[in-house]
Design a protein around this nucleic acid. Sequence first.
DNA 1: AACGATGTTTCAAACGTTTGAAATAATAGC
DNA 2: GCTATTATTTCAAACGTTTGAAACATCGTT
Lengths: 337, 337
Amino acid sequence: MQNTPVTLKHLAEKLKMSISTVSKALNNYPTINEFTKKRVQDLASELHFTPNKSAIDLKQGRSKIIGIILPNLLDHFFTRSIYGMEQLASKHGYNVIISQSHDVLEKEIQSANMLLQTRVDGLIVAISKHTQDFTHFNDFEKIGTPVVYYTRNPSFNGSCHKVLCNTFQGAYQATKFLIERGHQNIAYLGGPKMISFTHDRFNGYIHALKDHGIPFSAELVAYTDFDKESTITAIKNLFSSEDTIPTALVAFKEPILFDAMKYLRSVNLPNFEQLECIGFGNNSFINYFNSPPIASIEENPESVGENAMKLLLQLLNRNIEINNYQKIQVDCKLVVH
Amino acid sequence: MQNTPVTLKHLAEKLKMSISTVSKALNNYPTINEFTKKRVQDLASELHFTPNKSAIDLKQGRSKIIGIILPNLLDHFFTRSIYGMEQLASKHGYNVIISQSHDVLEKEIQSANMLLQTRVDGLIVAISKHTQDFTHFNDFEKIGTPVVYYTRNPSFNGSCHKVLCNTFQGAYQATKFLIERGHQNIAYLGGPKMISFTHDRFNGYIHALKDHGIPFSAELVAYTDFDKESTITAIKNLFSSEDTIPTALVAFKEPILFDAMKYLRSVNLPNFEQLECIGFGNNSFINYFNSPPIASIEENPESVGENAMKLLLQLLNRNIEINNYQKIQVDCKLVVH
DNA sequence: AACGATGTTTCAAACGTTTGAAATAATAGC
DNA sequence: GCTATTATTTCAAACGTTTGAAACATCGTT
């Protein structure tokens, strides 16, 4: 009933050899005699020796930890992206620490400081929607810790590494799909204007219209701030004009779309059953919907996460120079239900 | 453009004082002159001094980190429970490291070892569904690190700390609710038999029937292994007998319930619209369902998480002796939709 | 018997902190 | 002007590792 962890020193004393021999034996140094190695390793596993990570990290000046800061864990996009990151990280001997900002700048700064103290070897971050100032992230780069931004595109131009969803392409594809199904009046329901990709998505929508010779109508576009009331207001606007009643809808994010559809059903929109909707997300619960959206724009979060981690690992291995800023886009995929 | 983190030594040299003075000034020791403190603190923040956590942890023999091992982050139960844990932990100066086992024993052991090396101060764990052997967790207690099991009840009896959902009470309430709405043929769709609370839930169901004088019928009970096929088989069984067609259903977990409802709708079950269902979970997407279950059993994961963390903190502060094993149950709440 | 060569182990410093004890400085009392 | 007291700073060891350099052991050559 030992109450304190076994150390190299303990092992050394029991085996009557020096600490360095024990250390080297455990790390399989070629200069150490094979028989000695066996003796050491046997005792180590017998006593459940577990090296003290703090000591190693301190000595080595690295932590083998990747920090991840993201808004929250309730959005499946993020949890799925974590999956991609973790897989790759652990394959390269890194662990991850996840910290939620809850989309609050204050908390994001706290998380950053925590990870700075932890001396993470690298940082992957989906910034909060309020982040305009980036000094809390610059601190990492100042000490040589690479930072990769993902999903949420920071507002400064160029001088950072980023991995983004090709959200333009996603919106384009969805719009095109609806056009090809014969729709002319396709509405676009956008998200908060402060989020970077709100505009990219809008552009995808616009370009698809243009490429197919469909005139753009401002009456078919509205924005919501994510909350239910604001979504309903937007939807009311979209469906209020006499001449251009939407027959299809592309929405910024599925929960918004669901709110919209629920509302439209509740007010008995004429031709509700004919209305064809597509949102970003591909939420797994769509399977259970009674009248699901016709398709979803799958953003492949696992792949986004994996790409972000891959880039970070390349930066850590100096396969890519830290100031050779990269921008990677991961394509979306239209999933028809 | 400094490329290495600022240390106490740097500060000491710049200020021409000893490292200990700097350290004590930053830690606000009463013996240090106020003016000195100010000088030190000013320079520290000017140079963005960030203490090296590895060094502190090593010196202090603790990490101020709580390890959390759980099956996955895709289940909202777990992400919501994390919220409760994190809140409380950070209030007490602890950070958390989350590690997913993906319900695979192998990965759970890996996670445990990682956290053991990290020398977490405490561990909270929802065991994988295959965990029978607990040696990888006993290693923590051997070195005095308290372990709290939550949600998933380990199979050994008594000698561990645990925080569980009062899943018996949840099932009881749901069943009672259905009885009071006039149902006599209430089916129970259970989960995998290896998961501890499958049986507790069944017992809740049984006791509610008994307390209200409704005879138990084995034909109204079936089990699924979580996958869709197995759920459908179970549902077929439940609805196959002539005399006892269920008019209500209590299900082990909402996704299972959704699969079941989807199937029943697809085969045009007579009186499908009258069928009243309740599942464990209270998934937020139920809001968007066209014909939602009549109610949900809300397991209050935030509260479960918070209670687990609270217990762990009490163990860390020695407000509760480590071998004074605690069992805490958190009540469920029936949410009518 | 002395000499390398080779194989194996140990020494000792370092990583960045913390902290009790010791040293020094400043001040007051007489 | 000396001592006692108090305020402030510094010393030095320690936490558990890693690792290049140095030390030691063994053995075959000549």
